[in-house]
Amino acid sequence: MGIEIERKFLLASDAWKDDVEKSLNMRQGYLSHDAQSSVRVRICDDRADINVKSTRDGIYRLEYEYPIPMQDAQELLSQVAHRPLVEKTRHVLYVADHCWEIDEFHGDNAGLIVAEIELASVDERFYRPDWLGEEISTDARYYNSNLSKLPYKYWAEDS
Rank of each mutant, 00 (worst) to 15 (best):
M1L: 07
M1K: 12
M1S: 13
I3W: 11
I3D: 06
I5M: 06
E6Y: 12
F9W: 08
A12L: 12
S13T: 13
S13K: 08
S13I: 11
W16E: 09
K17A: 14
V20C: 05
E21C: 10
S23A: 14
N25W: 04
N25Q: 14
Q28Y: 05
G29W: 01
G29V: 05
L31R: 00
D34L: 01
Q36R: 12
Q36P: 00
S37V: 02
S38W: 09
V39H: 04
V41A: 01
V41I: 15
V41F: 03
I43Q: 01
C44E: 15
D45Y: 01
D46I: 03
D46M: 07
R47L: 12
R47T: 13
I50V: 15
I50W: 02
N51M: 13
S54Y: 12
S54L: 10
R56N: 11
D57K: 01
G58H: 00
R61G: 07
R61L: 11
Y64E: 14
I68M: 08
P69S: 10
P69H: 10
Q71M: 07
Q74T: 06
L76D: 00
S78F: 02
S78G: 09
V80Y: 04
A81R: 00
H82D: 11
R83G: 00
R83D: 06
L85I: 09
L85D: 01
V86S: 01
V86I: 10
V92Y: 05
Y94I: 12
A96R: 08
C99I: 15
W100M: 10
D108C: 04
N109Y: 04
A110C: 11
G111W: 09
G111N: 09
L112V: 08
L112I: 07
I113M: 13
A115D: 11
I117Q: 00
E118Y: 15
L119Q: 07
A120I: 08
S121N: 12
V122F: 10
D123M: 13
D123Y: 06
E124C: 02
R125G: 10
F126T: 04
Y127M: 14
P129H: 10
D130S: 13
D130M: 12
G133K: 04
I136W: 01
T138C: 07
D139W: 04
Y142I: 03
N144K: 11
S145K: 04
S145W: 01
L147H: 03
L147S: 03
K149F: 01
P151F: 03
Y152P: 02
Y152F: 15
A156W: 04
A156V: 13
S159C: 15
S159E: 15
